[in-house]
């Protein structure tokens, strides 16, 4: 019996509506996504996509620098991009679940009338992709370390703290985008992918924030992802992590503090945005809208 099954078998009476919704949604998401464990799909999602996206940057970098992969900026770009896979996975997982439930499985009505916490449900639906994304990150990082000899210097405690707050903030962001998705038509690509692609620009994932014009840099400070990427790089690369002026003044745990605070704020915001979106969906009759064109 898998862990998810075991969790799912906890008697319902012992579960709060939120926990029940979360566990059931995680189980459902896993059932939908778990075929990724097949070799072909594993190759697609866990290897081909992430490695390709990181190789694009490696080649862009190498074309200009003649392959100077030993520079700190290379490790900065590589690790930032590898970690960013998780942003895409989590954020996309939730917003895609909204579309999938509404327009593919057409179960939106049943979900929003069930006596459960639908906020927790949405969070749960993101879990499967989070797990898949985590495996991708691991493989991409390992590839980088082996292929480009990126030196590791891991601070486990710092890494764990960064991961906990990072994932929490990503999940909250996912729910916010899920809430927005509830209001919109099915776009060509899902909102999660679009936003995570756009945030590439501001979060210092693939270039130091200092490269941005000074008037744009503050936008990056508004996103917890920025702090999460910075502190995780430090936790994994140690002294090898490139320190650019932007965050040089912050200590590692200072960054964790900022990340924790911002995560808390984002959670509050996600709860508010979600209830507002749900209310508006009910007012406008958008819960089970069909938007194909």
């Amino acid at each position: 019996m898998t862990l998810v099954q075991r969790l799912h078998n906890i008697p319902a009476v012992n579960q709060s509506p939120a926990l029940r919704a979360f566990v059931t949604a995680a189980w459902l998401g896993w059932q939908i996504e778990s075929n990724w464990a097949r070799p072909f799909l594993f190759a697609v999602y866990v290897i081909a996509r992430p490695i390709s996206s990181v190789l694009i940057l490696v080649i862009m970098y190498s074309v200009i620098t003649n392959g100077a992969t030993g520079e700190p900026i290379f490790a900065f770009i590589y690790f930032g991009n590898a970690l960013y896979i998780l942003v895409n996975s989590v954020v996309t997982g939730v917003s895609w679940a909204v579309i999938e439930d509404r327009e593919h499985y057409r179960v939106a009505k049943q979900i929003y009338t069930a006596p459960m916490n639908t906020y927790a449900y949405l969070l749960g639906r993101g879990v499967a992709r989070l797990i898949i994304g985590s495996v991708s990150v691991l493989i991409t990082l390992t590839f980088g370390v082996l292929a480009f000899r990126i030196p590791l210097d891991i601070n486990v405690l710092l890494f764990l703290a960064a991961t906990i707050f990072g994932l929490a903030s990503l999940s909250a962001l996912g729910v916010i985008l899920g809430a927005v998705t509830m209001q919109t038509a099915r776009l060509q690509t899902d909102l999660g992918s679009l936003v995570s692609g756009g945030l590439y620009l501001f979060t210092g994932a693939i270039f130091p924030l200092d490269v941005l014009p000074s008037w744009l840099q503050p936008v990056g400070y508004l996103f917890p992802v920025t702090y999460w990427l910075e502190v995780t790089r430090r936790a994994l690369l140690g002294a090898h992590a490139a320190r650019f002026p932007t965050f040089a003044a912050f200590s590692d745990w200072g960054l964790i503090g900022v990340l924790a605070l911002m995560t808390a704020l984002l959670w509050l915001a996600s709860g508010w945005v979600y209830s507002a979106a749900l209310r508006r969906s009910k007012e406008e009759g958008l819960i089970d809208i069909e938007t194909n064109f």
Binding site: A185, I289, E290, T291, N292, F293
Partner: peptide, 8 residues
């Protein structure tokens, strides 16, 4: 039947 495009 549910054919058609929802936005039309």
């Amino acid at each position: 039947e549910t054919s058609g495009y929802g936005l039309l």
